[in-house]
Amino acid sequence: MRQFSEFTTMFSLSELPSPGDVVIVTDQLLSPADFVIHKTISSHFKDVGKAKCLFLSVSESLARLKAIAAKSNVNLAQHLQSGSFAFVDVGSYIEPPIDRAHSSHQTLLRPLFDLTSERLSEWSDEGATPLVVLDNISALEWIGFPVSDILRFLRALSALCRKSNVALLIRHHVATPAEPDDITRLLYQLGTYHLEVLPLSTGRSGSVSGQIALHPGPGISQPVQRPIPRSSAVQYRLTDTSVVFFERGTGSTVL
């Protein structure tokens, strides 16, 4: 138990995206990083004064966000009404090009960027502390948006958030862990931190859901958060609506 309390003080998801940070969250199919997204939003609303959140959702549903946030005593429906939480269904906002071979010069993701910038300027006037969550960027590539457009959008979005001192969290599904694709490579360069959610190499387990590693990005000289290398990755276990972290070898089945 001592180890667990020590660990919670040295690592907490709530501290992760501080203003101006770009946090890249990568996950794999056997270990979805949903818990990082949900936990970050809940703790942002709980811990930060004048908290605002813009959620750019490609695949996450609002109903699920609300249900899980409710268990953390965050009423997202109320925040939606008051305007402190904005949910953008990216799929209904932009569409991939029908004819991919002859794509026009117009960037398809521009409307999404304009929307974000507009919303952030509104909130900065109010003196709020916004958080922008993009869940997820990989599905945009899969459904047919050109990679060059996505790369431009990512660069622009991270620059915008850094300029306006806004925390940004970008989730990316890694389909080929052995060979990082172009988007993954760019994200490694952009991010202040890279939170890697990994499955267990031995497959699914009832007592350990997966493990996480935290790498500082190339642009950060003195990381505030203590890096967690893969070799000593922290394990976690999911419950219905929350997550429990523990160091290797301290799980309930081991002790």
Partner: peptide, 8 residues
């Protein structure tokens, strides 16, 4: 596997 309203 489906998890419509839960993490797990």
């Amino acid at each position: 596997l489906p998890a419509p309203y839960t993490l797990l």
